[in-house]
């Protein structure tokens, strides 16, 4: 009993330090984004919105933000659609080489991002599609579709297999059943997947940097600023990016957790 308590305490400390290591830099970035001094040093200067005003008036950053929003919102739609289709085909049908099919579908996140990004660049430029927003959307869809598939597959596996047949039995055609049973049942997973894939796409740097050309997204422009000099603008942009992503991820989690709890009842 006391041994258990001891391990428990150690694990709690461990968890605590993980959070400290992850969140301290983010917290500092947020604090320094409101600091009037040019260099991030302690003691802090005055509270100031100077850097926010600066990025607000910067057309290039605006453009990057718009690009990021366009890319992530289209990516999440494509990835979730693809993910749903694969998850459903896995749920519904049995076919030869299904194992290989699933392994292929789940492959992209296991490839190192740099390699994936280089391959994407090589391929997209070969077919004359590189350097456009569409190229980022394509590449991001490939990267995030497996996440969508994993979430939706989890939900489908919870479904009573008789539900679909019950709908046919009550006169619903296959399409009507898809619309009236499968999609409503998967709704929380679909919302969760939309949020999560949007968050991944919004944050993603390596692939965007390789294939974006002149259409920079937010992570790409951050790198450009950091490369040039030390500029607290980065902290302000970072704060925005952080809150966007965390909102999306938390929304995804809320939908995910509520359905998980319901599933257990």
């Amino acid at each position: 009993m006391t041994k258990d308590k001891f391990y428990n305490l150690i694990l709690k400390f461990y968890l605590f330090f993980i959070f400290v290591f992850i969140f301290t830099p983010i917290a500092f970035s947020i604090i320094f984004s409101f600091n009037s001094q040019r260099f991030p040093t302690i003691p802090l200067g005055n509270f100031s919105l100077e850097w926010y005003i600066k990025i607000f008036n910067d057309a290039e950053i605006w453009q990057a933000a718009i690009n990021s929003v366009i890319v992530s919102s289209i990516t999440c739609l494509i990835a979730t659609f693809l993910g749903f289709c694969t998850a459903y085909s896995d749920y519904r049908y049995r076919f030869k080489f299904k194992g290989i099919y699933l392994a292929l579908v789940l492959l992209p996140p296991t490839i190192p991002l740099i390699i994936l990004a280089l391959a994407m660049l090589a391929w997209l430029s070969k077919i004359g599609m590189s350097g456009q927003l569409w190229s980022i959307i394509c590449a991001h869809s490939v990267l995030t579709a497996p996440f969508a598939m994993a979430i939706i597959r989890l939900r489908l596996n919870q479904m009573d297999p008789d539900l679909e047949a019950a709908s046919w039995n009550l006169g619903g055609s296959e399409w009507a059943t898809m619309r009236n049973v499968i999609l409503p049942y998967c709704k929380p997973a679909i919302i969760s997947s939309l949020c999560l894939t949007a968050a991944v796409s919004f944050d993603e740097f390596a692939i965007s940097w390789f294939v974006s050309g002149l259409n920079k997204t937010v992570p790409v422009i951050i790198l450009e600023i950091v490369q040039g000099n030390i500029d607290p603008q980065v902290n302000a942009i970072g704060t925005f990016v952080f809150f966007t992503s965390i909102t999306l991820v938390i929304t995804a989690q809320i939908f995910f957790l509520t359905w998980q709890m319901k599933g257990k009842k």
Partner: peptide, 19 residues
């Protein structure tokens, strides 16, 4: 096809739509 028949079934699992 099942949806073209008029043979409603009461399932062992009941299969009520939870949503």
């Amino acid at each position: 096809k099942p949806h073209e028949r008029d043979t409603p079934l009461v399932w062992q699992s009941l299969a009520l739509f939870p949503f």
